[in-house]
Design a protein around this nucleic acid. Structure first.
Length: 436
RNA sequence: GGAGAGAUGGCCGAGUGGUCGAAGGCGCUCCCCUGCUAAGGGAGUAUAGGCUCAAAAAGCUUAUCGAGGGUUCGAAUCCCUCUCUCUCCGCCA
């Protein structure tokens, strides 16, 4: 959420910056609502002040045993007018709030301008794609030929965009998550957290998924669909990313200055409806309704959030370096950034079968955008409560990392070499070979 | 799922319709006293918003005692709904 003060005092500039990310701010409507709000609020408060003063007088008079009927008469007519004004004010505030909740964050000045991913800017590249002297397979063929990856059965169990892994592949998947967690906790100073996978609406509003992106989520409720239908709204949503529960730990909290920066890591499943992505990445593990991710979150002093962003990216990169997977880091342009982000780096890993780099991590500084929604604050050097800056990034998406390992480490005989960094997690196993 | 108890400021805790934004204590800040330390005295110490103002300062004002609604001229206090916490019982991995 943007600062409404900034919208009041600097509307043209804000509108311009939002336009850079392709968002048309309804300035006329906002101004009209604001004018009404100002008028009605002043009026409401005047009426309240009158009522308070009169009530106080009544209290005084009564305590002295005087007659109060004169003052009572004076204040009698206020009731309806006040109720009316309060109701109007509430409606206006709601409408303003609704606008505010749907406005995306302002891009940081360093973000390249552009319409879509074609305008993203490469920051750096690491590693060289390995040359192959045989016909390579994509991760689906590799996994299926080894008898370890089974989309057909997954579809029987659940439907499209679900997967089933077995044996060494399931283990490799687990190994990746363990390896990421260990690296981030032992080498990068993150606190490991285990979080709820079902969250309430307040949490989703806090990080920006609601109210605008409800269709991207899965909803669940106690007692099944029918009873929930009768009772109205869903009670929980499945987390689309651990960013939601982790970041919301500080919702409506005031954390002490000394505790900053807070750095959390969590390995969770993520659930996304993938509405609007029909036909995209339908083959394989790239885009699933359920996938695992190791998520990194920083909660920091506003002065340090851009340093923190660089660190966060480097922590995610470290995983790929240890796995010796080639990647590049991209600065997303204004038009390609997510709703809550002020600046985002994507890390893209090399996928030989696609002959391209594909997103495997997205690291964003949300500045105070989420913190304002959440009222997540700290006590600053002067003792004043101040909004935190929040950052989050994948470190990394486990499923996609698995894809990268399979494709980059495949051998001519169809087996897959286990990356050296993962061997300690695989009980000495050094390759995935056909079960036969 | 059943029965009961509770939720007040940074913390503890008083307050059952009227000078209550809230006693008292602790903590914290500043000052005084005291030749160290300790003790003592005094003052201060919530948050968010609106309006006036070029701005700052300041002033005026509103809201907030778990959340929402209601009664009332007036609600921390009375009524209703909800959430959460604790205790006991049941069930459960």
């Amino acid at each position: 959420m943007l600062d409404i003060q900034q919208l009041r005092s600097d509307l043209d500039n804000v509108t311009q910056q939002l336009a850079k990310r392709g968002y048309l701010f309804p300035a006329d409507r906002f101004n009209a609502l604001e004018a009404d709000r100002k008028r009605i609020q002043t009026q409401t408060q005047e009426l309240q002040a009158q009522r308070n003063a009169a009530s106080k007088k009544i209290g005084h008079a009564k305590s002295k045993g005087e007659d109060v009927s004169a003052i009572m008469a004076e204040v009698a007519h206020l009731g309806d007018a006040l109720k009316d004004a309060e109701r109007q004010l509430e409606q206006l505030q709601e409408q303003l709030q609704k606008i505010l909740l749907e406005v995306p964050n302002l891009p940081h000045t360093s973000v390249p301008e552009g319409k879509d991913d074609a305008n993203n800017v490469q920051i750096r590249r690491w590693g060289e794609p390995r040359p192959f002297d045989f016909m390579i397979k994509d991760h689906v063929s590799i996994g299926e030929d080894l008898g370890l990856l089974d989309f057909e059965t997954a579809a029987k169990l659940s439907g499209a965009r679900f997967s089933l892994m077995k044996g060494g592949l399931a283990r490799l998947h687990r190994a990746l998550a363990q390896f990421m967690l260990d690296t981030h906790t032992l080498e990068h100073g993150y606190v490991e957290t285990y979080v709820p996978y079902l969250v309430n609406r307040d949490s989703l509003r806090g990080t920006g998924q609601l109210p605008k992106f409800e269709e991207d989520l899965f909803a669940v409720h106690a007692g099944g669909a029918i009873s929930a239908e009768a009772q109205g709204l869903p009670e929980f949503h499945l987390i689309p990313t651990a960013e939601v529960p982790i970041t919301n730990m500080v919702r409506e909290a005031i954390v002490p200055l000394e505790s900053l920066p807070l750095k959390f890591v969590s390995h969770t499943p993520c659930f996304r409806s993938e509405a609007g992505s029909y036909g995209r990445d339908t083959r394989g593990l790239i885009r699933q309704h359920q996938f695992d991710k190791v998520e990194l979150v920083h909660l920091v002093h506003p002065d340090h959030s851009y340093d923190a962003l660089e660190q966060l990216v480097s922590h995610a990169e470290k995983i790929l370096q240890k796995l010796e997977l080639p990647y590049r880091v991209m600065a997303l342009c204004t038009g390609d950034m997510g709703f809550s982000a002020a600046k985002t780096y994507d890390i893209e890993v090399w996928l030989p079968a696609q002959n391209t780099y594909r997103e495997i991590s997205s690291c964003s500084n949300c500045e105070a955008f989420q913190a304002r929604r959440m009222q997540a604050r700290f006590r600053n050097e002067q003792g004043k409560t101040t909004l935190l800056h929040t950052l989050n990034g994948s470190g990394l998406a486990v499923g996609r990392t698995l894809v990268a390992v399979l494709e980059n480490y495949q051998n001519a005989d169809g087996s897959v070499t286990i990356p050296a960094a993962l061997k300690p997690y695989m009980q000495g196993l050094d390759r995935l070979a056909s079960a036969k």
